[in-house]
């Protein structure tokens, strides 16, 4: 069965192209992205350097010089590669869905680790306990890794927790759990960041010397579990 969801392909400069399924966060669109990603990984397009899945789009980077040697005469590399990608999309089996790995991520929601938790609770007219309860009550989907090595974008939080980004980025520790809009995310490394920080996990989300490099991958299902400060220290 072919891809029935509308999409369009556009160039991302002269060495990459993006297929876009719509500018929105949806498990269905992300499933198609992941399906296409796995197919391209198993059987890459000629000259493909890599494919990068995002929320609802996938980008293919290619070696322009290599591709120029293989394209039909009179065609640009982009037209040729775009045509090949269309064919892949036509042949995409949407029915068979990607299975999700379920992961538990312990988080200490103490204001010591989540300096923005009191502010977020106040802003939303809730107690800090209520915020923690809402944040831990549902499993989230890992939509993509990006921004930093291993930074994990998850969605979507309860509408009551939605909070826009800070005006000024501040410095954030590795393992911090943040909220931006209805996204929740895990800072894999210490970095400046604009998300509101409500807690921290003792798990090492990214490790350059470990296989796998990242603890979580797109398509995974993540459940946060609240732990105490003592439990955090003993982890």
């Amino acid at each position: 069965m072919s891809c029935t969801i509308p999409y369009h392909i556009f160039p991302l400069g002269d060495s990459a192209m993006t297929v876009d399924f719509g500018n929105r966060i949806s498990p269905d669109l992300n499933n198609i992205v992941m399906k296409l990603y796995q197919e391209l990984k198993a059987s890459p397009l000629p000259g493909m350097k890599e494919a990068i899945p995002a929320y609802s789009s996938l980008t293919v980077h290619y070696d322009l010089l290599y591709c120029s040697h293989h394209r039909p005469v009179g065609k640009t590399v982009y037209d040729w590669m775009g045509g090949l990608l269309h064919l892949r999309l036509k042949a995409l089996d949407q029915e068979e869905m990607v299975s999700a790995t379920e992961m538990i991520v312990p988080v200490c929601y103490d204001p010591f680790f989540g300096p923005d938790l009191p502010l977020l609770a106040k802003e939303k007219n809730m107690s800090m306990e209520e915020v923690v309860h809402l944040h831990t009550s549902v499993p989230y989907r890992v939509y993509l890794l990006g921004f930093l090595p291993g930074f994990t974008y998850l969605g979507e939080t309860d509408e009551k927790l939605a909070m826009s980004r800070k005006m000024q980025p501040s410095s954030v520790s590795a393992g911090s759990i943040g909220i931006a809009g209805r996204q929740t995310g895990i800072y894999s490394l210490s970095s400046p960041g604009g998300w509101h920080i409500i807690g921290r996990t003792p798990l090492k989300i990214f490790d350059a010397t470990r296989d796998p490099l990242t603890l979580l991958k797109p398509g995974d299902s993540v459940k946060f579990v609240s732990i105490s400060k003592d439990e955090f220290k003993d982890y």
Binding site: S15, N23, I52, A54, Y55, S57, T59, G146, Y153
Partner: peptide, 13 residues
């Protein structure tokens, strides 16, 4: 001022 969700970028974007 339409909001965009995160998507790919490239060297030179």
């Amino acid at each position: 001022k339409e909001e965009m969700i995160s998507t790919a970028v490239n060297f030179g974007t």
